[in-house]
Every structure is written in structure tokens, then in C-alpha cells.
Write a protein that binds this DNA or RNA. Sequence first.
DNA 1: GTTGAGCTTT
Length: 262
Amino acid sequence: MSWYLRPPNTSLFVRNVADNTRSGDLRREFGRYGPVVDVYVPLDFYTRRPRGFAYVQFEDVRDAEDALHNLDRKWICGRQIEIQFAQGDRKTPNQMKGKEGRNVYSSSRYDDYDRYRRSRSRSYDRRRSRSRSFDYNYRRSYSPRNSRPTGRPRRSRSHSDNDRFKHRNRSFSRSKSNSRSRSKSQPKKEMKAKSRSRSASHTKTRGTSKTDSKTHYKCGSRYEKESRKKEPPRSKSQSRSQSRSRSKSRSRSWTSPKSSGH
DNA sequence: GTTGAGCTTT
């Protein structure tokens, strides 16, 4: 057929992305050529592992094209990525469900899940409510390969940077509040005023030109949130001491609710 | 209100 013309698709299909390449890196890389609407790194539905490719959706097809031409065959995270226009739209879970016959390498891994699914396929289909916050369920105990996806394999928005930023640390705030709920003496009036004053000094957001010129990115960083923490180099003994203290504190905090009575 | 299981190769 003669659709060799570039498809009017603003989504780019990035192939051969490293395992440790996260949507954040891609977004940053591609964002230089235009506003990125969304970055999506598909994971294996069952194994929850990166499948080696990603999708970057631009706002304008022109930007997508530009990025394609500029970033194609670029080395990111130690791998040469290949970019091309996305061919189809993202498949809905329903579509994929029907596509069960995709016999990838070995289905031995899926055997477990298959059995489970077969056992309670009806139930699974029924309780597919996506609004449930399975975060709690997932946090309880999540073993990527050992444990099969309990109905909902944490289909959270964690893959999408866009959504992730929307409600990023909501639970964090709550946790914090909970932690320091022992002392309830904090004049909120002043705090409020302060906060407002602070908020007034909103600088322009387009000024992120610190490490912009750098061409290499940290792919090894696990989580951006963690990366945000800056740990100044301190003495060994001090570090050890603190480490121990922290460990202790954490340990106590964790085991406290369980074995508090007895 | 809009999807998140998108064309991959181990």
C-alpha cells in the first residue's frame, strides 16, 4: 500500500530501550523537541517487567517528527534506541485479553497465572473494577515473579509520568501527618501566612537549564523521589551511627503496630 | 471521565 507517508500519529514508538530507562528519562529526552503529552512504558502484564520499548506521545506531530529524527539511533542508557511512528493506538485491556494467544517465548511463566485465571476467570472478569486503590493490596506483599497478579496487577498510573505527577505524594503527606500526630501544637495561622507568602514567589518554570546540556542521563537511579534526596558526604563513623539509628527507628516503627500488645 | 495489556525480545 502507499501509506509510506508518515502517519498522522503523534505517538512515537521507541524500541530497544534499556531496562532501567524510565519514563522520566524518555520524557526528558524527548521533551526537548516539543511538549510531550505522555510517556508510556509498557510492562509485561504478568511479569511486570519492562518489555524493552516505550511510547512517547507528543502534542504536535511535527515535534514528534523532529524528535524522531534527532533521537533516533541515539544511545540512551547504554543502548541504541530506535524510534518510529506508532502504528496503532494503545490497546485496551479488553483487546489484549482477547489476544491471549500471543505465545511469547515460554508460557511456563504464565502457567501459574493461567491456572489461576482459569480457576476464577469469571470472578476476575467481574471484579475488574479499576477504580479500586489496589495500592494497599500491592504494598502488602508484591513479588514480581513469585506472586501472580492478584486480579489486578497494580495497574496503577505509575508508568505514566503525567498521571504520576498529578497525585504524587498524597499518601506521603498523610503518612507524615500521621507520624507526627503525637504533638498537636502548631499554630496554623502563621504557617498559613508563611506558606502563602512563599507561594507568591513563583518563578518561571522554564528555567531548568542546569543539566540541560548534558547528553548522558542517569539511568541507574532507581526512583526519582529518592534521587531527589541529597546526601551530603559525611564521616564514616557518623554515617554509620546515623545509619544504625535510622535502621533502629525504622525497625521499631514497622514492628510496632504488630507486636505492640504482647 | 477515557483507557495504561500498544508494535518488544528474552
